[in-house]
Design a protein around this nucleic acid. Structure first.
Lengths: 237, 237
DNA sequence: TCCCATTTTTGATCCCGATCAATGACGTCG
DNA sequence: CGACGTCATTGATCGGGATCAAAAATGGGA
């Protein structure tokens, strides 16, 4: 994990043709507000493996993910890692009440974020309840996902975990890029293991087992769901 | 789990002398608003074991817990249960975006809630951004707790889980009732197991082991922390 | 192209926590 | 008070997933 070397894009970007305009926080803003909002955020790039912010860092910015995938995780003092989620375009990161981030966030592959300084963003929200409502909506959705993930971590077997992960990840990609039985997996096996509360070996073995049974095909950078119904049956169990 | 037979208190309750006035959602309301707010909620009692609302039920009310403890949980189709949290006085329940509750909630022992019909409550929030901000704050705090719990479920050993649970539960009680090394545990061993992603036997054995080592004393309806530092050491590991 | 570092897969073995089973401790009701 | 139902504890055994170890695949970079 190297130091976070960011590159700042020159100007010339407009919220109105932003890729996540319609489903990120900014979806709640009207065209006039959007022009004002535009001045608050700036696009920043991160390379794969770079850390965007760390747990316990004082929060100075919020982030709107525009492109790429991020892993969000917490570490125990002895180095054990739990990935609490993967962020995709449209996800809004950095909200907290302690003034510090409560998890770390790394880029997986190249990432583009829209970065907002905390204070100006806070002032902008102040008299725009619809934006606050939007943020609240996103928080509540995340909370629901977090609870689902607790069930997975606490009560599901390795097979169920992997099957549930594949379906859930596919579902999220579907809503971004449309339906497909080919599921790209930009994250490493170790990332998947740390997300599912397993070891890398168990994840690898489970993938291999699913492939042997003709349920999936392991392809470069992802898997292909040969028998989606079977995957769903495994996840439902 | 019997049918939820509720008893509705007669009138005569005032938000101004409500026990949770200062730290629940209503903490964000000024005295004038509070008088209006008063008409929206009504106090309802539940006996131990009664279900206040169920996962997948259409949300018709929100709840502000006034007295008692609740278990919040999700069930898998085959009956496995994951408790996603315990609610204490001041906790606000029922927010969701799907229009359905995404977990079930039972009373553990006798419980009093302040129940709000969804529509009037929604209307009341509409032009009161400070209340919305308060709700958002509570959601974000819960999200942070949810992430902490994911780390526990995915990456901690049984001993660590139990020690972390005891400390976390004590901490929550401290902020309600003040400090004490005696930790009341109103929930059953099965509840604790389903919260920690363990079996009842493992929870029981871990308690016994901690007692044998002189770390805790198991008392009627709870435990006493004989060596809090040792418990913290176990939880930190 | 080959080399070397990293990641993934596969194999062998172990152990923590689950499961199966029985006993003990309460509380409640007749 | 004693019988019974529920919950908690304890014991014996099992097994899923972890750990330890090595081989295979992948991917840059010179």
């Amino acid at each position: 994990m190297k130091a976070s070397v960011v590159t700042i894009e020159p100007g010339g970007h407009f919220c109105s043709d932003c890729a996540v305009r319609d489903f990120a926080v900014c979806a709640s803003l009207d065209p006039a507000e959007l022009r004002e909002f535009e001045h608050l955020g700036r696009r920043v790039h991160f390379d794969g493996g770079e850390t965007v912010f760390s747990e316990e860092d004082i929060t100075t910015s919020f982030y709107n993910l525009l492109e790429g995938v991020m892993r969000l995780y917490k570490l125990l003092p002895d180095g054990r890692r739990q990935i609490v989620g993967f962020a995709l375009p449209g996800d809004f990161l950095g909200m907290n009440i302690s003034g510090r981030h409560n998890f770390s966030a790394d880029a997986i592959g190249t990432v583009t974020v829209c970065q907002f300084a905390k204070a100006p963003f806070g002032r902008f929200i102040e008299d725009r309840p619809h934006l606050l409502r939007r943020i609240n909506e996103l928080a509540i959705r995340e909370l629901s996902q977090a609870r689902d993930h607790m069930v997975l971590l606490g009560r599901r077997s390795a097979d169920e975990k992997v099957a549930t992960f594949l379906l859930g990840w596919r579902e999220r990609l579907v809503s971004l890029k449309g339906s497909s039985d080919t599921v790209p997996l930009p994250m490493s096996r170790q990332d998947i293991a740390d997300y599912l509360g397993l070891t890398i070996e168990t994840v690898s073995r489970t993938f291999t087992k699913l492939e042997r049974h003709g349920v999936i095909e392991i392809i470069h950078g992802g898997v292909s769901l040969l028998d989606p119904a079977k995957v769903e049956a495994l996840a439902a169990a």
